[in-house]
Design a protein around this nucleic acid. Structure first.
Length: 124
DNA sequence: ATTCTGACA
DNA sequence: TGTCAGAA
């Protein structure tokens, strides 16, 4: 199962493809890269090449934002997930665990909410 | 035609 | 975040 992970990390998608796949603007995608949430490689003329992993993260960022988290909150979530998966290469994070962490983050700082202050009740 | 960086009426 | 400019 190493071959699969290798291909998921293959940087082969140009900006245009990622924009369509994620419904995000180039501006946002570049911004998330600056926030070290994704690490697209560069190619020929300094053009970004994204991997399936980058796209997955972008998709996660999307729904975290729709859940009401701001950039600070999104970064924490992605970073935690990254640490958790790097350190715990063994067992994957259970849905319950992720929801638990998510809830803790929301409660730890009532300021994390930004857009839909009421989306939580509906979701959680 | 596409994407990149930098900047802001 | 959008968007425009100037370059590659």
């Amino acid at each position: 199962m190493k071959d699969k992970e290798f291909r998921r990390s293959m940087a082969v998608f140009p900006m245009g493809a990622v924009m369509k796949l994620t419904e995000l603007s180039a501006r946002q995608i570049r911004y998330y890269e600056e926030q070290s949430l994704i690490f697209p490689e560069r190619s020929d003329g300094n053009r970004r090449l994204f991997s399936l992993n980058d796209i997955d993260v972008l998709l996660e960022i999307k729904d975290y934002l729709s859940e009401g988290l701001n950039m600070a909150g999104v970064k924490r979530m992605i970073e935690m997930k990254r640490e958790e998966s790097e350190k715990t290469a063994k067992r994957a994070l259970s849905e319950e665990e992720i929801r638990r962490i998510f809830r803790e983050e929301l409660l730890s700082q009532g300021g994390l909410a930004q857009r839909n202050p009421n989306a939580f009740q509906a979701k959680m």
